[in-house]
Simulated assay, not measured.
Amino acid sequence: MPITNLNNLHLTAEQLTAAQDALTQLETTLAVININLTADDRRKYGSINEQNKLFVNKVNDYNTSQPALSSPEVDWTEFTADFASRQSYEALIARLDSLHTRLDNAKTLHDYDNYQAALTDYAYTSYKAGTSAPGFETKYDDLKQFFAKSASPVTPPADGAGQ
């Protein structure tokens, strides 16, 4: 017998509304930085790898601790703003990724519970259809399409095979 009801925790309607409102507020707040990159833009600008992040961090450290060594050709005010934004966005992304993982895990358990309950209902429907109980044959015929057997022909082994 399969394990069922792996996740009996459910958000209330008020909690769902609060979460949706919070997401709407987040989307509204972040709309100012909403930039759509094309696939070509993504390839062109990409994301700096870990080695290059270390390089940027080191340049920032030098600019902060020894500004006299910094290039006058760099807009250091903008560099500092970009650096702070990148760090803030990275922290937000990590939190959103964590929320995504937790929501996905909870959804996975609810999906499993739904599927197991649906299988139980299908088995009951199959039984009742076999007893000619009214309505169950139609329901069974409608549900059995989800369990279509694959028609893969079995080739008999050649003479002497398997010996």
Rank of each mutant, 00 (worst) to 15 (best):
H110Y: 02
A123G: 05
R42W: 09
S98M: 10
A68S: 08
P157Y: 12
L37Q: 03
A19K: 00
L143W: 10
I48G: 03
A123K: 05
N114P: 00
I93C: 02
D159K: 15
N5I: 00
P153G: 09
R42M: 11
Q163S: 13
E73A: 08
N63R: 10
R95C: 13
Y115Q: 14
L119E: 14
D40P: 04
Y127K: 05
G46Q: 06
T24P: 00
L37M: 04
Y124G: 05
Y112E: 05
D82V: 04
A31F: 06
P2H: 06
W76F: 05
F146W: 07
K128N: 06
G135C: 08
L119Y: 04
N105F: 01
Q116M: 10
A22S: 07
R102M: 11
L37K: 08
V59K: 15
N63Q: 10
Y122H: 05
N105E: 04
S132Q: 02
G135I: 07
A118F: 00
D82H: 02
S132C: 01
V56C: 12
T24Q: 13
V59Q: 15
N52P: 05
L6W: 01
S70P: 00
P156I: 01
A68K: 01
Q87E: 08
A31H: 12
D41G: 07
A22F: 14
D75Q: 02
Q15E: 15
P153F: 11
N57Y: 13
D121Y: 04
L99A: 15
A13Q: 11
H100G: 13
S98P: 04
K149D: 14
N34Y: 04
Y89I: 15
Q145Y: 01
T12E: 01
T120Q: 07
S88R: 12
N60W: 13
R95F: 13
L16W: 02
A31I: 07
N60H: 14
Q163Y: 13
D75T: 03
T4P: 09
Q66S: 12
D61Y: 12
Y45A: 01
A117G: 01
V56Q: 08
P67V: 03
S70Y: 06
E137G: 14
T12L: 01
L23D: 12
A94H: 08
N49I: 02
Q116P: 00
H110W: 06
D113I: 03
F83S: 03
D104P: 00
N60A: 15
L92H: 10
I35L: 09
A158Q: 10
L6K: 06
D113G: 11
T12R: 00
Y140W: 12
D141T: 10
G130L: 07
A161F: 15
I33M: 13
E73G: 02
F79K: 01
K139D: 14
S71V: 01
A91D: 15
F55A: 15
D61F: 11
T24D: 15
Y89Q: 12
L119W: 01
L96P: 07
D97W: 00
T77G: 09
V154M: 10
N7P: 00
A148S: 14
A39H: 14
T120M: 11
N105K: 09
D111L: 06
G130Q: 00
Q116I: 13
E78L: 01
N63E: 11
Q25W: 14
D21P: 00
Q145G: 12
A129R: 01
G162L: 08
N114Y: 08
T125D: 03
Y124E: 07
